[in-house]
Amino acid sequence: MITKRIIPCLDVKDGRVVKGINFKNLKDAGHPVKLAKMYDEQGADELVYLDISASPEGRKTMLDLVEKTADQVFIPLTVGGGISSVEDIRRILKAGADKVAINTAAVKNPEIIKKGATKFGSQCIVSAIDAKRVYENNKTKNVIETLEGKCWLEVYIYGGRKPTGIDAITWAKKVEELGAGEILLTSMDADGTKMGFDIPLTRTISEETNIPIIASGGAGTLEHIYEALTIGKADAALAASIFHYKEYTVGDIKNYLKERNVPVRI
């Protein structure tokens, strides 16, 4: 039986892991390869590196980190952040990553998903979608019901800084059609809050597409992860700070899930 995946995410800036709230106030959280090895030993199913360096030097450091990680860690590695061309994809895969996560470049030029999927296979193209609720009953958008009221879901780019006016549900269907093999769905509202995943967002996107969904943003407790994988219908859950600050190990999460009959690899 296919298992639900637990994926630690490492936000990497100039070679170091950092974590902040809503992409702001960044704190140092350790060395990427060291953390990657530790999570692998804890039973992580995959790892994600998000490169939030803004400089060309930072990007080069990232390639070096991917090589070092691939030499020591034998579980799938996804790399995202600043990927803007098919050549960027090739470089990262060649360094030893298995998948690339693309957000901004795909919104600006959706063809990059199609080209990447044709050239390297759908399985290595992850569409990263950062979405934020907009509480208005807009007839031109897909409006969903939430406990907080009716809203539609807006796609953000540039690390959560720029709204696009694009409906996340429409966009998710579009990236599937273009050949993305998976969606890494981050709730901008929930990210960094530790108050739980945006369940209506996750569930809606999961039901509206037929590719795997990784839920991201908001993990603070074991129950949050359980909810994302059951009520939220996500195929995988991604978290960062609860791991970096050693609140829970990957093993803690998996034991909790297993006791509640969620299939996990232990």
């Binding site: 296919i2 298992t3 995946r5 199913d45 399985q123 998976e182 037929n210």
Partner: peptide, 13 residues
Amino acid sequence: PPTVKVPQMGWNS
């Protein structure tokens, strides 16, 4: 088959 998410992506026994 169309009854499952495609690709199959993850750990299976």
